[in-house]
Amino acid sequence: MARRPFGTPLDIANGVVSLAHGAGGRATAQLIDALFARHWHNEWLAQQEDATVLPALAEGMVPVVSTDLHVVTPLFFPGGDIGTLAVNGTVNDLAVRGATPKYLTIGVLLEEGLPLATLERVVQNVAAAAAAAGVAIVAGDTKVVERGKGDGLYLAVTGVGVAPATQTWGARAIQPGDHVLVSGTLGDHGIAIMAARQAVPLATPVESDCAALTPLIAAMRETGAPIRAMRDLTRGGLAAAANEMAQVANVGMVFDEAAIPVRDEVAGACEFLGIEPWHLANEGKVLVVCPPEASEPLLAAMRAHPLGRHAARIGEVVADPYALVQMRTLFGGMRLLDWLHADPLPRIC
C-alpha cells in the first residue's frame, strides 16, 4: 500500500466506529488501510481505483454472478460469524450453479459505536473464509450509520465465478423420475442461531454448519455423473428450496421423512419449539437433483468428503401439474411439505 502513514495509528483494541469513518475523508482512508486493506490485501485491491479491472476469461468459460445481503444477530455464534457466513453464503450460491467462485466484492455497513476490535475479528474471518474458498476480494465499500440505526454491522457481498458455457445447472432441467439428494443433516444453523439468542435451552450445544461447499461440489463434479440442479439450503430450509425448484420445473416431489438426516439435538429442539427441521436455515448444505443412475456415484463422492458424510437420498421427482412437494411421514401417511410464509413461530400448546 503506497498511502502515506497517518499521524496517530488507529486504536483497534479500544476504539469504536465513528461517523467520521464513513465520511470519505482521512478517517475513512485510515480505517480502510488499517483493517480492510491489511487483512484482504491482494493484487486487485492494490489497484486502489474506483473500479477493478479483472483478467479475461478462458475460452469457452462464462461469468456467473450472485449477490447476497447478510444480517445476523448475534454477529458471532457457535460454528461461525457474520463474516464467514457472508463469504460462504455467496460462494455457495455460485458453486451450486456449477461455477468455480473467483472474486468477491464486499460492502460493509457499520453502526456508529461498533468496537473496532469486533470489526477486526469479522474482517479477519472474512479473509480466512475467502482464502479457504479460493476467492479474492477485489472491491469494497464502507458506510457508517448513526448509533441505533443498524445491528452493529451488515455485509453486502457480490460474487463472481466462472463455469464452462456448456455446464450450468438449473431447476428447469429437472425431470420426473430424478432423484433428490441432500449433503447432510438439516437445521443445524437455524437451531445454533436460536440457541445463541437464548430462544431455546439446549443440553447439547449445536454448531452452525457454516461452510463453503466448493470442495464438496468439485468432488461431485469429478465423478462425471450428470447433475440437473442444486440449491444451497439457506433461509426457508429444505421446504423452501424444494418448493422453489418444483415450481420452476413444474414437477412434484415426494420426500421420505425417514431418510431425511437430522441431528438428535436439532430434532429435540424442534420438538420443544413445535417447529420442523425442514423449515430451518442451513449454511453448508446442498440439495441435489440428478438422474436416477447418478445418485449412487454422487452419494459415494459426497460421503467420502467431510462436508457430505451424512449425505442421503431423500426423495424423488414425480410428474405433477400442481407442482406440490409431499412427504411420506415416518408413520406411513402422506402430507404436504409446504413452505412457510415467514419464519416459523413456536406453537403454544
Binding site: 411421514t329 415416518l330 408413520f331 406411513g332 401417511g333 402422506m334 402430507r335 406453537r347 400448546c349
Partner: peptide, 17 residues
C-alpha cells in the same frame, strides 16, 4: 378437541391410515 391433536393428525398423515 385439541389443536395439538389436529396438528399431530395432519402432521403424520393419520387419516390415510
Amino acid at each position: 378437541f385439541c389443536g395439538g391433536h389436529t396438528h399431530a393428525i395432519a402432521r403424520y398423515g393419520i387419516p390415510a391410515l
